[in-house]
Each structure stands twice: as structure tokens, then as C-alpha cells.
Design a protein around this nucleic acid. Structure first.
Lengths: 191, 191
DNA sequence: ATAATTGTTGAATAATCATTCAACAATTAT
DNA sequence: ATAATTGTTGAATGATTATTCAACAATTAT
């Protein structure tokens, strides 16, 4: 028995996510969020709590979307190696189609060391992507597509850790040839 | 014909560097700098110009120190492969001995996309480390220690880009076994 | 229709931000 | 000794920060 919200919570959270993603946590002001979300401060605080909670929700939204993207890319291939390659190519492709570096990677460096909530979430989420890859790598080793002499867990960690480099190289050099050469070396290293 | 400064400019710049390195640009306030550098605002502005200029100088100081560290690590070995391995091990070791992620990597994500001066400097500095590695890799290929089928420039880029992942993994997992396994896979991939 | 509840609005708040500057101190050339 | 120059000090500045709240609007149960 009360008034209804006049906006779509998820849609406006998406606007906040885009802004935090682009500018980072500290460089994003509440005024920036008020403008981007097209909401008054009162509505933001009433719905999301405050800047920090809004940021955490934004990161969670981003992170879930990203994980789905990687899993979808993998699902298009029947062979485990094909799936692993698809995930690696997805990462490189994303770094050139999206005009900003991966929010998870950015946040790992801007926030994870200073904010425990961010740290815990990113750790869990990154571990999830690693597990997904580890499973694919084990399947590929069983089918003979992937080097069976290397530890699947280590290879999964190597792949995920390489993604941070993809984004950094894109930010600094914006050189497709360089980035694709790097991703090819990564793929080579597991086969 | 005037009064002399009562402090060592380089030493105080080092204090600023440590603070920017730890907290990043946006999370570091002028008050934080006044406290850490043990200087009044007037002295900071009179000597360094302002927050942004002070940050750029801090990053340059950090960057030069880091490059020297890598070159020194490489200089201890006679063989090119030994030098390349030493640089990779230096990166992994640094990620566990220093209590904060590489300032260049952090800045690539927090600042490089928003500040052209930072971007230009990091691009140049990263390219320099790559060139140094590329040269070692070519020598290693000539002496038969390093895989001659792979492009030295691409391998150099792959190595440097991997460093960002080293730091991210350290921040998120702080797991020595994982990090050393990753660095071993990187070394394997070039031999 | 009324009371109760929830949402919206945007001005107000108090803290913090980067930066400036006037007063004073030290050094040096003349 | 004086003038000129540079450095130090720390309070003052005005802008921006995140957050709150009182007034008003909409919805629903009774």
C-alpha cells in the first residue's frame, strides 16, 4: 500500500555501472551519477543505499554479464580446445569493441586492495572463470587436444591472468596486430 | 641570491610517489600529500606546481627506478635466456615483496585512459621495457636458447603484458604457488 | 474519504577538495 | 645596511564532495 517507483531499477543500475566502469569509483561523483542515472539523490539513496553500495551492485551486474559472455562464447564450440580459444578470442575482441578496459580488471587495481567487499567479490568471480576454464582444459587434455603435461589449474590461471595484459596493451598501444599476436602466443602455449 | 630550500626535493618526491603508488591518483588528497611529504601546501605548489604535475613526476620517478631494477636483474646473467628469466622472476618476486601492485600497471587502468600525459608516458616507458626484452630474445634465438619460430617482438609484448596479470593475481589471490606456476608457464612458452 | 505508506524533489548540510596568498624568514648582491 | 629575491607558513578561498531531509505526490487498505 504505497506509491510505486517511476523508474526501472535494473535499467538505472545499468547507467551507474557504465559510469563506474568508464571513470572508476573515485573519479565518479554522486553528481555524475545523478546526471547519468536521471534520478535525484533521494531516489538513489532510497533505492541503492549510497555510492559504495551502488558501486558494488554495479560491479556485480557487470561481472555477471561478462561471465555469461564468456560462457556463451564457449558454448558455440563442441571441442574443449575450441571453447578455450573462443574465450581467449572473446577477451581480445572485447578489448577492441568496448571502449573501456574490463571493469573487473580496473577494479582489481583501483579498489580491491583498499576495499574488502570489492576484493572478496572479485576474487570469487575470477575464481569462477578459472574453474570454468580448468574444466574445459581437463576435457581437452582427455581428448588429446590440449597439452597433457601441463597442469590444467595452472593453465587456467595463466589464461585468466593474461587477460589483464590484453586490456593494458589495448589501453596503452591500441594495436590490433600486437594484441592478436599476444593472444596467439597464449593459445600456442596450451596446445 | 635568495633563500635555499629546507628540504631535499627528490626525497620528498619519493614520499609523494609512495602515496600515489599506494592509493592511486584520485584517492590521494592534497592533505594526504601535505602530511606524507611533511611540507606545507605552499612549498608543494612552489616546488612541484600542483597535484597533477606532482603525480606525473612521481610516476616518472617510479618508472625509472623500476626499469633499472629489471635491467639490473638481467645484467646478472650472461645468457640471454637467463636474463629474460631473471626479468620474469623479478616481476613475480616484486609482486610478493612490495605490498602494492606495480604503479605503472595501476596507472594504466586508473589514469591512462583519462589523462593523455600519463598515457603518453606509460606507452613510451612500456615500449622501452619491451624493446629491452625483444633484444634479449633475439640474442637468445641466435644462440639457440629461445624458440626461433616465434616473433621476438610478439614474445616481448607477451611477456610484458603478462606482468599485469601477475599483479592482478597477487592482489586477488596472494597465492605464491599459483603465481609461480603462471610465471613458469610463461617461461615455458618462449623456450 | 481518510490514514498509512512509499516515492519524488531539490535545496540544505557539513565535510573535504585543490589551490592561493599575505605575512614573515632567510639568503645574497650591492 | 639595504634592496631584491626566494622559501616557509598556515589560514582563507571557493568549489565540490557525499549525504540528509522536509515538503509534497501517489498509491492502497480500510
Amino acid at each position: 500500500m504505497a506509491r510505486n517507483k517511476e523508474f526501472d531499477v535494473t535499467e538505472r543500475l545499468g547507467k551507474a555501472k557504465d559510469l563506474f566502469w568508464e571513470k572508476g569509483y573515485n573519479a565518479t561523483s554522486m553528481q555524475d551519477l545523478v546526471t547519468a542515472m536521471e534520478l535525484n539523490p533521494g531516489s538513489i539513496y532510497g533505492t541503492f543505499g549510497g555510492k559504495h553500495q551502488l558501486f558494488i551492485e554495479s560491479l556485480k551486474m557487470y561481472s555477471k554479464e561478462k561471465l555469461v559472455e564468456y560462457e556463451d562464447a564457449a558454448a558455440k564450440y563442441d571441442s574443449p580446445l575450441g571453447s578455450v580459444k573462443a574465450i581467449i578470442r572473446k577477451a581480445i575482441t572485447r578489448s577492441f569493441t568496448e571502449n573501456k578496459a574490463c571493469m573487473s580488471v580496473k577494479c582489481s587495481f583501483e579498489m580491491a586492495s583498499a576495499d574488502e567487499e570489492t576484493h572478496a567479490f572479485l576474487k570469487q568471480q575470477t575464481a569462477e572463470l578459472m574453474s570454468f576454464l580448468e574444466n574445459l582444459l581437463r576435457l581437452g587434455q582427455a581428448s588429446g587436444e590440449i597439452n597433457p603435461d601441463k597442469d590444467a589449474k595452472a593453465m587456467a590461471a595463466f589464461i585468466v591472468s593474461s587477460f589483464a595484459g590484453f586490456w593494458q596493451m589495448q589501453v596503452l598501444f591500441n594495436d590490433k596486430d600486437m594484441s592478436f599476436a599476444i593472444s596467439n602466443l597464449l593459445i600456442d602455449s596450451i596446445t
